[in-house]
Design a protein around this nucleic acid. Structure first.
Length: 394
RNA sequence: GGACAGGUACCCAAGUGGUCAACGGGAGCAGACUGUAAAUCUGUUGACAGUGUCUUCGGAGGUUCGAAUCCUUCCCUGUCCA
């Protein structure tokens, strides 16, 4: 490893503990073992996952070994990280299935041929009670409780179950089992990673170095990107959808997304900042960002189409070209609210009525505000529900 | 084992016999506006029915003309004592 490489690695990270040790260890010439733990409960990877995975890619390109750990054992416990509530445990079939989809997505970034994939049940299930107790004897309750999410839960008087205390320990033991030289992940994992260092020392290993990445804030601009909060942009998401979601981020997220997802270089980044400060419309930069991100995960063409679509529909408020079509069943008049629910443009009839009454439905551009209006559709009619749902009668 | 507090809609949280499909906030959805699906403001947010019916306040029973609210019992959580 060269000095420049170390600097490249350090870029856009939060913590890099044991950087010097890692550097000297790399000088021995053997590929480093880089640990990355994956939670198989969420097979939909999003841009937030992409941040650490792209860092892994850097290591892989330098010739180091990525050890990808599927936490099948720990998933059956439930990781309390960042959770205010207990996680549901998963069945084995679910985990298997999830892991499969997981790697289909990771494979787009990493070279899986060169990646070592391990399941932590391999060593965790055979761990004896004896051994476990020995490990437990090295940590105190307050050490574990120190962890931010436990502290929060504890002080807000929400339940913390005993098995949850074991989670950081099990995860730390993974590092021992695979003899990790470095562990990489989101900054919320720092505590677990540091615990692993102590455990490795206990087992007579050199402690792993720790590298944490910033957490990408989700499209709501408040919380970290997560599937359960619904503020995520999926890696495999449809290009139009992806583009649209990118446009919905608050303006001050433009820079972080550039840094973390596109890894835009400093001079370009500086230029964007300056231009925005000088009053250039952030919307232009967001369009650019959305285009580049869509391009990255799809293709240039698809990104351009998505961009056009967005501009026509949202900026010019015109019809998009590709409207879903439905054939006219009968020439009989139908009640508008029933029509909307029948064609899945509203989740329930009550909801359809609310949207109509609120002025959210138009037929050929004319607002229909009485839900009980009887409409006789003819070929070419266009029904619009809300901002994004269109239907053409054929 | 004992004492006490609590479990309400997607989340937080008010409500202690009728006026409760349930205050308020968040989130969602829609409208207006705009520079974008940003921000702000307004409306709306159980289901079905052309306006009344059904389901909902941890579960199951009960009292009552009537229950989220009272009683019994069970389940769950927190705090303190042991």
């Amino acid at each position: 490893m060269k000095k420049e490489e170390l600097e490249l690695i350090r870029k856009n990270t939060v913590d890099f503990i044991g950087a010097d040790e890692l550097y000297s260890r790399a000088q021995e010439g053997k590929p480093l073992r880089i640990k990355y733990g994956a939670d198989p409960s969420a097979p939909d990877l999003h841009l937030g996952h992409y941040v650490p995975i792209s860092k892994l890619k850097q290591f892989q390109d330098m010739g180091h070994t990525i050890v990808f750990i599927i936490g099948d054992f720990t998933a059956s416990i439930g990781d309390p990280t960042g959770r205010s509530k207990v996680r549901k445990a998963l069945s084995h079939e679910q985990i298997k299935e999830n892991a499969k989809t997981y790697f289909e997505q990771v494979g787009k970034v990493l070279d899986l041929e060169k990646t070592e994939i391990r399941y932590n049940s391999e060593w965790s299930t055979v761990l004896s009670m004896n051994e476990l107790l020995k490990m437990m004897a090295h940590f105190t309750l307050s050490q574990i409780l120190e962890r931010d999410d436990f502290t929060k839960r504890f002080s807000s008087q929400t339940p913390i179950f005993l098995h949850e205390f074991m989670y950081p320990l099990m995860q730390a033991y993974d590092s021992v089992a695979i003899k990790a030289d470095l562990e990489l992940g989101g900054s919320d994992q720092l505590f677990n990673f540091l615990l692993a260092r102590e455990l490795q020392i206990f087992y007579g290993q050199k402690p792993q170095s720790v590298l944490t990445m910033p957490l990408l804030v989700g499209t709501d601009g408040v919380d970290k990107m997560s599937k359960s909060l619904g503020n995520y942009v999926g890696l495999t998401e449809d290009s139009v959808q992806m583009f649209g979601k990118m446009m919905s981020i608050p303006d001050d997220l433009i820079i972080p997304y550039h840094q973390l997802v596109l890894q835009t270089n400093d001079s370009d980044l500086g230029e964007i900042k300056v231009n925005m400060q000088q009053g250039q419309n952030p919307m232009e930069f967001k369009l650019d960002l959305a285009t580049k991100i869509t391009e990255k995960f799809h293709s240039t063409e698809k990104a351009m189409i998505a961009r056009e679509h967005f501009i026509t529909v949202h900026r010019k408020k015109e019809m998009p070209d590709d409207i879903p079509e439905v054939s006219l069943d009968s020439p009989e008049p139908v009640k508008i609210y029933e029509f909307i629910t029948d064609h899945n443009m509203a989740p329930s009839k009550s909801e359809a009525k609310r949207i109509i009454a609120g002025g959210g439905v138009t037929i050929n551009g004319h607002k229909v505000s009485d839900p009980f209006t009887e409409v006789t559709f003819s070929k070419g009619d266009i029904v619009k529900v809300g901002k994004r749902k269109f239907l053409r009668i054929n």
